[in-house]
Design a protein around this nucleic acid. Structure first.
Length: 507
RNA sequence: CGCGGGGUGGAGCAGUCUGGUAGCUCGUCAGGCUCAUAACCUGAAGGCCAUGAGUUCAAAUCUCAUCCCCGCAACCA
């Protein structure tokens, strides 16, 4: 295991407000960051998120809002930051592609690749193809029928212009070998297969990384051609290194978060897999940047709204804040990571949230906490008793508490298999509920078996504290609240953590 | 013949790589208990694991074929 951990989210394109998809990625990243901080120490974890602020769509959205692009992005960024704060996203750094540090690094990358000896990785060439002027979009020949734009159905023009290209094609063989030699690089496995089969069945064409300024001015100027700005994706991917390091005079990349001792995780949605699994590693390789000890690109699935994709055009996008306000931040975080195995698509509905809330949070966890508090209060006047001699069941539970924090399997699984990790925690909660049932403390009270009762209650409290530690990464507020209610010596009972949501129609 | 994913009790899913009594959650039904948020615990009903063929002592799991659903198909986050 590496001793440092660097996790990133995509930088979000700020042409619109955030939806649950954005929040899903950031919550997952936040959980991993918190989880790793518990294990490696706070100073050994770096969590980066940010925003992608250049490009045509931003320029267009800004025009429509009657603002300059900079004014426009400044405004939208506030929404993202506000959301992350509300959702308890504990990022260490927030990068914006319009920041100086980023622009500087992108400029250096372009220079280094352009001046590379003996063969530059960036070259100039004529681009020829179809272009729809109203849509400002290029179309490959294969998508064109009858010389009409596939999008708006208006006539398109064949154009020819000078652009700059990044020599992706040179590195195809290298990339295939790299991915095959590093099974953990692209995850989950089915995405890895997807990328590999794509690479094996197609010939990569070089990536056009420039846009003529007369068409698009909102971007980072090419240092070797003032008439062009950088293509947004090429600009955007570089954020992962521009945020945590710099290039020295000789073009060597220096960073405290990109060494052989660091595990790097790029969390992304499956829609941007190709950019991350193809363009990005080739860019790093072309720049002679050494790969970290462990590097993973993990593509998670999408949230569907019933059978439909979530999209603005369908008008079915859900605002994360609405859900968090309605059900609570921790409930929202729990639901997203528990309901669907990370990597697969899921179905989003308020009904499923309520189901999870009532059964897992209210009935299992909330009720366990509450009934335990009541017992400490009633049987011991709020004082937490000392440890005592345990019966067989008690010993088993104690072993499970240990396992929760040390079992390598669990730690590993929580890494990306969030739902399984939560399931294991909930197994312990179920054990505790069963322990209460079978010990029947109410009988121990009647029979005045105080020693047994003390041992029982103490273990129950210990289980709950262990659960609180285990769920901390997922539900930080809830963990904190549980810890506050169960002190070292005595309890401080509050109201139920998750009051059941009544779904039965009232008569 | 483009590429990939999926089709498992009423619902949602795991299991498939590394064949060997089909598992989880919710729901339903019956019972127990009272510390608790009508919560908790126990038990039960319910599946020819899409279809057909093959390999094998043995197939949800491997092979082939077929049907159905869903993504992706390159300058569009």
């Amino acid at each position: 295991m590496a001793n440092k951990f660097y996790i990133t989210t995509p930088i979000y394109y700020v042409n619109a407000s955030p939806h649950i998809g954005h929040s899903y990625t950031n919550i997952a990243a936040d959980i991993l960051a918190r989880f790793m901080r518990q294990r490696l120490g706070r100073e050994n974890v770096w969590f980066l998120t940010g925003t992608d602020e250049h490009g045509q769509k931003i320029q267009k959205a800004a025009d429509e809002a009657n603002l300059s692009p900079q004014e426009f992005v400044d405004k939208v960024v506030v929404q993202f930051k506000y959301l992350w704060e509300k959702l308890n996203i504990s990022y260490d750094d927030f990068i914006r592609t319009t920041e100086f540090r980023h622009i500087l690094t992108v400029t250096r990358v372009l220079e280094i690749l352009k001046n590379k000896k003996p063969t530059p990785d960036i070259y100039e060439a004529k681009y020829e193809g179809w272009y729809c002027i109203p849509c400002e979009t290029f179309w490959p020949k294969t998508q064109i029928e009858e010389k009409l734009c596939p999008d708006c159905k208006r006539p398109i023009e064949e154009i020819s212009e000078t652009n700059y290209f990044f020599r992706l094609s040179n590195y195809q063989g290298w990339l295939i070998e790299y991915i095959e030699a590093n099974p953990g690089f692209v995850q989950p496995a089915n995405r890895r297969h997807e990328v590999l089969s794509f690479l094996k069945l197609n010939r990569l064409t070089d990536l056009c990384i420039s846009r003529p300024k007369e068409r698009l001015s909102w971007g980072i100027p090419l240092p070797f051609s003032p008439q062009h700005v950088t293509y947004v994706w090429f600009d955007a991917l570089i954020n992962y290194i521009s945020a945590v390091g710099t290039f020295d005079k000789d073009g060597k990349y220096i960073s405290g978060w990109w060494g052989k001792d660091t595990q790097v995780v790029h969390l992304i949605g499956k829609d941007i897999l190709r950019h991350h699994a193809v363009y990005w590693p080739i860019m790093l390789h072309a720049l002679n940047i050494e790969f970290p000890k462990d590097m993973t690109i993990f593509a998670h699935g999408w949230w569907m709204m019933g059978q439909d994709k979530m999209s603005k055009s369908r008008g079915n996008a859900v605002a994360p804040l609405d859900m968090a306000d309605k059900f609570g931040i921790d409930t929202y975080r729990y639901f997203l990571l528990r309901d669907v195995p990370f990597g697969l698509d899921g179905n989003f509905s308020e009904e499923s949230i309520i189901k999870r809330f009532n059964s897992d949070l209210a009935n299992d966890l909330g009720n366990l906490v509450y009934r335990s508090l009541t017992m400490v209060e009633k049987y011991f006047q709020g004082k937490i008793p000392q440890e005592g001699v345990l019966n067989e069941q008690g010993k088993r539970i104690k072993a499970s508490i240990q396992a929760l924090s040390t079992e390598p399997d669990l730690a590993l699984n929580i890494g990306f298999n969030f739902s399984l990790g939560l399931e294991k925690i909930w197994n312990l909660i179920a054990m505790a509920n069963k322990y209460v049932e079978e010990t029947k403390p109410w009988n121990l009270v009647k029979e005045a078996k105080t020693t047994e009762l003390e041992a029982f209650i103490r273990l129950l409290v210990d289980v709950i504290k262990a659960v609180a530690d285990a769920i901390y990464a997922f539900m930080p507020d809830t963990a904190k609240s549980i810890k506050e209610q169960f002190g070292d010596q005595e309890i401080k009972k509050g109201s139920p953590l998750f009051p059941r949501i009544d779904t039965k129609p009232k008569n």
